[in-house]
């Protein structure tokens, strides 16, 4: 049976508390993993592993946190995502909220796309499938 979004949220919260060593009241839907919760690159792998285990799902490389898009020169120009790159990123991350990022798609602002909500949306979608 598919889990409700609230059930997913509370389990994602547990995963992040354990993986990042944060308090559970620091975790809000819009909290960014890097900026607000202090995640580093290796924590993303740890989070992916823990999500796989907690929800019994398989998360292919780059599906939750696409990192290969920035390596493609066609997609990045002078520190900003090109229209093509942005389209690609949106397609790769249907679970993320692009409202703010789209207005000024600087590569440096990309971590703002990785929020608690992004993970909850992704897992909700994945476990409903």
């Amino acid at each position: 049976m598919a889990m409700t979004r609230d059930e997913v949220y509370s389990k994602v919260k547990e995963v992040l508390v354990d993986a990042l060593g944060v308090d559970d009241d620091e975790i809000k839907e819009n909290a960014t993993l890097i900026g607000d919760l202090g995640a580093e690159s290796i924590d993303f792998l740890d989070i992916v592993f823990r999500l796989e285990k907690t929800f019994s799902i398989k998360i292919p490389k780059g599906e939750l946190f696409p990192d290969d898009i920035l390596q493609n020169p066609e997609f990045v120009d002078q520190g900003k995502m090109t229209a093509k790159g942005l389209a690609q990123l949106k397609e790769a991350m249907p679970h993320a909220d692009f409202t703010e990022f789209e207005a000024n798609p600087e590569v440096d602002a990309m971590p703002s796309l990785f929020t608690v909500k992004t993970i909850v949306n992704y897992v909700t979608h994945k476990t409903a499938a």
Partner: peptide, 12 residues
């Protein structure tokens, strides 16, 4: 512990 296979990480 978490170990990284570094050639497959830290792209670039």
């Amino acid at each position: 512990i978490v170990f990284s296979h570094i050639d497959n990480n830290l792209s670039g």
